[in-house]
Design a protein around this nucleic acid. Sequence first.
DNA 1: TAAACATATGCGAAATATCATATATATGTT
DNA 2: AACATATATATGATATTTCGCATATGTTTA
Lengths: 107, 107
Amino acid sequence: MSPIQFYKCLADDTRLKTLLLITLKQELCVCELQEALAVSQPKISRHLAELRKCELLIDERRGKWVYYQLNPELPAWAVTVLQETAANNSEYLHPHLQQLSQGCANC
Amino acid sequence: MSPIQFYKCLADDTRLKTLLLITLKQELCVCELQEALAVSQPKISRHLAELRKCELLIDERRGKWVYYQLNPELPAWAVTVLQETAANNSEYLHPHLQQLSQGCANC
DNA sequence: TAAACATATGCGAAATATCATATATATGTT
DNA sequence: AACATATATATGATATTTCGCATATGTTTA
């Protein structure tokens, strides 16, 4: 995981919020992310595919749903970066966390 | 300083290396960065201008030279992110640190 | 098996970022 | 003042990224 590849992954609003929400919540499914971020299904899916390809996230299908988590093989410094960012930018994440807590229409 | 703006600044190889080298060295002048990274003068200058505009760096002219430092008003989490990244990616920075230690042709 | 649902992907258009070249500005030197 | 050096910026060409729409795949339920 080169730092430049890592930071290119964080340099998009959808991807950054996705990573930070998963950092806080351990795991989220596609429909939860789609609702929390209010984006189209292909959009969230394509960004998730990129994060998977770069090995920042891993996916796991359970029935109809696909759940995403941080890749447990992420280097410690990268996890620290995500946690530090998530813990200190609540204004940035707040509306989406609130939306998450309202529950998801599908799952 | 919104996290997305911060990470967009880190998402270019020249800018990321610039920020990490300055994190390690406290301050560097334009010609040192240009030599250490082996990039053209307009290129380093343009990226420095962007980092200035986003308030990640401050500049200070001393005679012919302009020195850049991290903006002291950077939020603590952002400084932590830079330090954690710089401290754990020596392979990424090593050639440039070595070049830096060889001294600069101009200053 | 078909229908419904959740997710993924192909593709072209639009937006954005990057770069090289040329040129401008500021400082120091003679 | 004239000139050399260090740095900044404008401009247009090129590359990269992002997105919307259409469609494909995989899973569950009827």
